[in-house]
């Protein structure tokens, strides 16, 4: 004596494999997008920490003779810096200190008076405040032509901005993939409703509540989404590990590192569950909508 698990036998539907594959592909794409976003996020944090410390502003070099005249320009830059929000302090390095730095290379007393030496201003930033360096650079150059912030800071600042755009794109991909999953589940549920309409009508007529019918669809699509999602996630893990191996050979300053050990990547494990929840809600709503049309 055996009783079938469900009347609709949706697991025999030909759409099952295709939907499993599509959900798997979506979870794969979402996993890569999430990994990319998280990696970029970690890198941004590191870069931001660097930016938070201090900056150096450089003024065009002057000879010993012009040093007195340059003092005014240095003072202008320092006061501009001090007026800038986020700047905790600005200190011009005395010419003497600069000379002693150079003497290490050129030898004591070997620096001619007519050698132009740039003025350097050491800027301390307030912790936790981000400064628009491009804007600051423009303002300084207006006050004192030739004043510029050391390249490192500017490039990092631009990279951080790029990283934020990459993160936004990753988020957009994840959302798009989610919407596509909703569309797929809606489509396949409608197909199932059409394919089994006689059975559904009969169940309805002999007193099945909407829940009873919806449950069979939900159980089916959740199962398919979970299996497809887990396979997609495994494929993504393979890809990430592969990329990590290739990336491990690159040794560049602050190059983003990929590692599945990153605790943030635990978020990836929820992707098949997210796919299952999307499938559950979508199927339930689709079936409820269709059953509302029955008498």
């Amino acid at each position: 004596m055996s009783l079938a698990r469900s009347e609709l036998q949706l697991h025999r539907d030909p759409t099952r494999r295709m939907v499993g594959f599509l959900i798997g592909a979506m979870v794969y794409l979402a996993a890569l997008a999430v990994t990319g976003g998280l990696m970029v996020g970690t890198t941004i944090n590191r870069w931001s920490d660097d930016l938070r410390g201090n900056l150096t502003v450089q003024l065009p070099g002057v000879t010993a003779a012009g040093a007195a005249e340059a003092t005014g320009r240095i003072d202008t830059v320092v006061s501009t810096l001090l007026e800038t929000q986020g700047v905790a302090g600005a200190r011009a390095l005395p010419r003497r200190e600069l000379l002693s730095l150079l003497e290490r290379w050129l030898g004591r007393g070997n620096i001619p008076d007519d050698l132009p030496i740039p003025a350097l201003i050491d800027v301390t930033l307030e912790p936790g405040v981000r400064i628009d360096l491009d804007d600051l650079q423009r303002r300084l150059a207006r006050e004192v032509p030739g004043a510029r912030i050391s390249d490192n800071g500017i490039v990092l600042d631009r990279l951080v901005r790029l990283a934020h755009s990459v993160q936004a794109a990753a988020l957009a991909i994840v959302l798009l993939v989610g919407l596509a999953a909703v569309a797929i589940i809606t489509f396949v549920t409608r197909a199932g409703l059409a394919m089994h309409h006689e059975t559904i009508e009969l169940l309805h007529l002999i007193g099945a509540r909407n829940n009873y019918i919806a449950r069979q669809f939900v159980r089916h699509v959740v199962g398919v989404a979970l299996v497809g999602g887990i396979l997609g996630l495994l494929a993504a893990a393979g890809t990430i590990l592969g990329l990590a191996r290739v990336a491990a050979d690159i040794d560049v300053f602050r190059w983003p590192t990929i590692s599945l050990a990153d605790p943030q990547l635990v978020a990836l494990l929820t992707l098949p569950l997210v796919a299952a929840v999307i499938a559950m809600v979508t199927a339930r709503l689709t079936v409820a909508g269709a059953l509302r049309r029955l008498p």
Binding site: L3, E7, R12, I206, G207, A208
Partner: peptide
Amino acid sequence: LRRRIGVVFQDFRLLNHLTALENVALPLRI
């Protein structure tokens, strides 16, 4: 209300993929 009503349809409306036993069991399962 429908569960208080038994219907013998003219075309039977049995589910072909279920056994006789499963077909008859339907109202009880529901």
